[in-house]
Design a protein around this nucleic acid. Sequence first.
DNA 1: CAAGTTCTATATGTATACGTAAGGAGGTAG
DNA 2: CTACCTCCTTACGTATACATATAGAACTTG
Lengths: 222, 222
Amino acid sequence: MARASDTVRDLVEQDISRGKLRPGDLIDEKMLSERFQVSRTPAREAIMQLAATGLVQMRPRHGAVVSELSADEAIAMLETLACLESEAAALAAQRIRQDELEALIAVHRESEPIARDHDSKRYIECNARFHGILYAGARNTYIAELIRQTRSRLAYYHTSSLNQRSRVERSWSEHGNVVNAIEKGDPIEAQAAMRDHILSGGRVYADLVATMTHRKERKDIA
Amino acid sequence: MARASDTVRDLVEQDISRGKLRPGDLIDEKMLSERFQVSRTPAREAIMQLAATGLVQMRPRHGAVVSELSADEAIAMLETLACLESEAAALAAQRIRQDELEALIAVHRESEPIARDHDSKRYIECNARFHGILYAGARNTYIAELIRQTRSRLAYYHTSSLNQRSRVERSWSEHGNVVNAIEKGDPIEAQAAMRDHILSGGRVYADLVATMTHRKERKDIA
DNA sequence: CAAGTTCTATATGTATACGTAAGGAGGTAG
DNA sequence: CTACCTCCTTACGTATACATATAGAACTTG
């Protein structure tokens, strides 16, 4: 049996990445303990774990909130994500197995009509599968873990961007460029294509972040 | 006043990165609580925070140990570190301020005789300052944070590699290549130079890891 | 004598109790 | 009426108590 704190952590992380908890929302120890029918101890431990990865912020004696991103931070994370994802794509171009490549192509084909229909909800799911296959193909679990960590912190802003109609179609065609490069086994081209893909998606929500970030002024200690 | 758990976390992290606690060593809650004169609660919370970042591993009911790396994991982390460091170098080539550049050059000059003398201890310190200036120059706190995280997990193996006589001199001359590229403001060249630097250092200790990793077979649950 | 089993000691996981600081409500003074 | 001060409520941080699973020792049995 796993520990209660781990279960709570995973569920809260899900809530955050699915937008049920949004940046700035308070995470109350008592609230969590009541919701999951555990005492404050595992609830608190779950929060501490999330705080250690940066997903939530704990300020002593002031409680924990889902981390908000300043525009600068969001840009920094985007740059970094582009770096990591493009490296993963480059590695995948060299290391992906035939069956994985076929799966990648299949997902890309499946998602074509979804993208044409601007079905954001389903496209987000295809997008996750697409990238997931690439991480596996890159044969580097650590870079995959860092990407996962980074994406979970950007999740709220990211899904917002994919909910824009125009973004879905562009995303799909950018995926196509990546697929072509991987098929050719060309790491340089795969890297460039993925970098463009991430940054093109990113520019869309860099603006979102900038506008969202003022939701309420904080009394941050100087 | 900060929380006790944060203090304990920082001190344990120091112990790990300085080699006082080595991969595989057990981290006992009671031991920590006695050493730092606190109760088990903050000691335990410190461990959980470290576990969340991967520096230690907690297996339920089996206690926590400083994470050991398999050869595969070490290679993956090296690849990733090379990716992050080279990106930071590329960014720094574009964004570093004049005074930072001068500081970088100064550190590099200072470390020349140290490298010539194969003074590993002092070189390690110069090396940290050198890279630290680059992170600042990259103007991306998130990538710096990921690098810090990754390096702390590789610290034990890394310092081992810099303790090899020949490595110090090569490291210094590789730093020179990076400095030249940054002075020219050439991100591509800076990226390539840094990548070579990290991977060249890495190859040295990939072997170390492979030999160290068998220190004692584990009863990992299948 | 060896192998397996049981028992016990210990450490982990969870709950709860206690001290304290932060924030808000209410009252008072200017 | 407003501004400030005080008191009180509440939630956080830490300590401790309790439950339980695991590891190791000792004993028994084949």
